[in-house]
């Protein structure tokens, strides 16, 4: 057998599984979004009604904009906080201890997401760990209320949950940077700061971009965090999708919102990639 035939045969079980459980269901959800449902009867006439409703009813637009806005902030916070960690591990940790540091950073990610989010609710609450501790220490006189059941709580919790997704891609790219380039820059009279700005950072950009996309895309569709710590002002599109499917029995509307969310995310990701390419070209 030829190599290519063998490769195809070998990859086919996994590929067929992805086709059946990912590609086909995605196609189904797109089809569903053009149907309508009245309580339990599904009307399979193709129509744009759901899309019209999604665009005209302000509640959907508001939730979508808020989801993208929250994800944008979460992404910026997560990546900015993560970069120095990736940099520290790559440039200042002894080679034999790097794997240990990366492992330490990823351990919390492997524990139950539900439990971690719930713990943030306990930490940030009105009578929570943070408030009772600060009150007990006499640092504040009244409990802080701006940290739970709002946008801030969602940002803190998601930035915590997605930390390894931002650290790992940046770390991988930093590891590949040829250290002699940095020495050369310094020999040619750059300071540590300008070397970082003009050599390290541009070389690290592919990792930063990967980190941005890996954090941004899944957080737009996060369900648990907005539900547990977001309060009414922190709900996101996934909560509405769940409500449409499981509470209102309006699966086609839920499907429409899911499709719109994916389209928005894809468009934003593509614009981001395009802007970045222009930015890098501009520097050269």
């Amino acid at each position: 057998m030829k190599d290519s035939a063998r490769g195809l045969a070998l990859v086919s079980p996994t590929a067929l599984y992805a086709l059946a459980m990912l590609v086909a269901p995605m196609a189904a959800i797109v089809l569903f979004s053009f149907w309508t449902q009245d309580y339990l009867t599904l009307d399979t006439t193709l129509t744009f009604d759901n899309y019209r409703e999604a665009v005209t009813d302000p509640i959907y637009g508001q939730l979508m904009v808020r989801s993208l806005y929250i994800s944008g902030i979460v992404t910026a916070v997560t990546v900015v906080l993560a970069f120095p960690i990736a940099y520290y591990i790559s440039f200042h940790v002894a080679p034999e201890r790097k794997a240990l540091w990366i492992f330490l950073v990823t351990i919390p990610f492997w524990t139950s997401y539900l439990i971690r989010v719930f713990l943030w609710k306990v930490i940030l609450g009105f009578n929570g760990v943070l408030n009772t501790s600060l009150l007990g220490l006499g640092i504040i006189d009244a409990p802080l209320t701006f940290i739970l059941y709002n946008l801030n709580a969602v940002v803190i919790t998601l930035a915590h949950a997605f930390a390894p997704f931002a650290i790992l891609p940046i770390f991988v790219v930093l590891e590949r940077i040829d250290r002699s380039l940095l020495e050369a820059a310094q020999d040619l009279g750059e300071t540590a700061l300008t070397t970082f700005w003009r050599v390290t950072l541009p070389l690290a950009m592919p990792g930063v971009i990967a980190a941005v996309l890996i954090v941004f895309i899944p957080t737009v569709g996060d369900y648990i965090t907005p539900r547990l710590v977001g309060g009414p002002g922190g709900l996101m599109i996934a909560n509405m999708i769940q409500t449409q499917f499981l509470r209102l029995n309006n699966a086609p509307m839920g499907a429409t919102l899911a499709v719109l969310a994916m389209v928005c995310v894809t468009v934003i990701a593509l614009v981001f990639l395009w802007l970045n390419r222009r930015f890098l070209r501009g520097r050269n």
């Binding site: 269901p25 995605m26 189904a28 369900y223 996934a238 769940q242």
Partner: peptide
């Protein structure tokens, strides 16, 4: 996003 996987499989 996992919710997309979940609802598309549900459908």
């Amino acid at each position: 996003p996992e919710i997309i996987v979940a609802v598309s499989l549900l459908v």
